[in-house]
Amino acid sequence: MIPALTPELILYATAIGLTTIGLAGVVLSVHLFRMVLSLVIAEAGVNLMLVLAGYRWDAVAPILTSLGEQPAMVDPVPQAMVLTAIVIGVGVQALAVSILIRIRQRYATLDRWEVAERMDADIAATAGTPRDVSQEAPLGERPLPPIPAKRVDPSGSES
């Protein structure tokens, strides 16, 4: 039986819904930019949640119009907080997009697995350590007969 559909419940549901959609987007997507966008959705959802925390149905927006008696007002504090949260969110997203541009220039791809692979290869190259976890060379002593010496490495990514 669906609980009574009070408007308050709908708003809470949308807030939590938005957050879960955002987070699911981040987890499921492969393209980095798509992940940043779904992060935006998640933040919007949480901001809505924050506003709802101080919301009262029978009250008006917390603006002091006249000096006299004021009608019942909504709690202004969460709204102030939401302002800063939104500002921070925008700042972070701008930084994220600029870094995505850099990655696009350097790695020519924004596929998260490819970027991760390239990053590991770079770190190993700068440090000078051989990459031990790769499909071509299984770990540990080879139970099978040794690979013939002169075998060209297909991926060619060996630096």
Binding site: V26, L32, L39, A42, A96, I99, R106, M119
Partner: peptide, 18 residues
């Protein structure tokens, strides 16, 4: 470029954290 990749991954993780 590795730094950029590391930053973006960290950024997304920290975004979810926030």
């Amino acid at each position: 470029s590795a730094a950029y990749a590391a930053t973006i991954r960290y950024l997304i993780l920290s975004g979810i954290g926030s």
